[in-house]
Computed example of a mutant assay.
Amino acid sequence: MKVIGVTGMPGSGKSIVSRTAESLGMKVVRMGDVIRDEAHKQNKTPGKSQFNYVRSTGNMWLQNDA
Rank of each mutant, 00 (worst) to 15 (best):
K2A: 09
K2M: 09
V3Q: 08
I4D: 01
I4N: 07
G5Q: 12
T7R: 01
P10Q: 08
S12P: 00
S12E: 02
S12M: 06
S12V: 02
G13V: 06
G13M: 07
G13H: 05
K14Q: 04
K14V: 04
I16L: 13
I16A: 13
S18Q: 02
S18G: 01
R19K: 13
R19P: 00
A21W: 00
A21R: 01
E22H: 07
E22V: 03
E22A: 14
S23A: 14
G25V: 01
M26D: 04
K27T: 13
V28Y: 11
V28M: 10
V29W: 03
R30Y: 12
V34G: 07
V34P: 04
R36Y: 00
D37H: 11
D37F: 09
A39M: 10
K41L: 12
N43G: 15
N43Q: 15
T45F: 06
T45K: 11
T45D: 12
K48F: 08
K48L: 12
K48D: 13
S49Y: 00
S49T: 12
Q50K: 03
F51V: 10
N52R: 03
Y53M: 13
Y53G: 08
V54A: 12
S56H: 07
S56C: 06
T57M: 14
G58Y: 04
G58W: 04
G58A: 06
N59K: 11
M60T: 12
M60I: 11
M60V: 11
W61P: 00
L62Q: 05
L62H: 04
L62R: 05
Q63K: 14
N64R: 10
N64T: 11
A66M: 02
